[in-house]
Design a protein around this nucleic acid. Sequence first.
DNA 1: GGTTTATCCGCTGGGCCGTACGGATAAACG
DNA 2: CGTTTATCCGTACGGCCCAGCGGATAAACC
Lengths: 130, 130
Amino acid sequence: MTDHGHPVDPDRVTAVQHEALSASEAEAMGGLLTVLADPLRARILSALLATQEMCVGDLALALGASEDAVSYGLRLLRTAGLVRRRREGRMGYYRLRDGAAREALEASLSRLRHLTALHPEAGADEADEE
Amino acid sequence: MTDHGHPVDPDRVTAVQHEALSASEAEAMGGLLTVLADPLRARILSALLATQEMCVGDLALALGASEDAVSYGLRLLRTAGLVRRRREGRMGYYRLRDGAAREALEASLSRLRHLTALHPEAGADEADEE
DNA sequence: GGTTTATCCGCTGGGCCGTACGGATAAACG
DNA sequence: CGTTTATCCGTACGGCCCAGCGGATAAACC
């Protein structure tokens, strides 16, 4: 087991402790990202961004997924506070939460789409030395 | 089992099929988000954004995590193409992948931080009807 | 060369998450 | 009022992921 009473670069260690994401911030962000990380849920959000409001069956049809899966995804999105439901008879119509959150979500998805498009692509470079 | 030869709103269904995230896009994004969703990995990235370059031991010290966990996190970040390693003797110094990806990552993290700060907060509103 | 140090790898186990299935609810329709 | 339709819920199962441990590698130091 390594000791580490001897940091290699103390300045950077303290810099990180001050500037980097705190554990609690990272945990909150992780919770949100875990919700966004599922392909079906991301597509549901994307669909709602495009159409304002849809019911479970149409979403399942449009996305080519089972209704159970869509229903389950919408439940998680709702408990995460990202999506709201409007009941009309036996149908449930879902839409994104309104307001600043909607725009923040749109911007985040756009950014992430861009980042993904950069295609990090596990470049296997192992030979570095100086 | 529901039939769904009868979409409620065919226009929106086709709109989603054209405009929403495709399955493959969502899968790629999901892979990336799964990597970002882990609190420790997000904090590692945040630390590297702040300091340019650090070794495993210092990261573990600064983040209050075990070296094994940090090493494992860095491995995943490396295979995801987000982080690069510079070997110097027995030490390994890690830095973010350079170029556009770095800026895209910084922008994404910033956006996500903002989105998280909006605090979706599982608002339990169930009573909607018209 | 032997020891210490910094990091990495393989393996194992526990835990969480998503899907599928069956039944339940509740509205429309005749 | 019984059936059909759209959705929801509870449960069980399988799979993936991450922390921890032990050993391996490889450089520095005496």
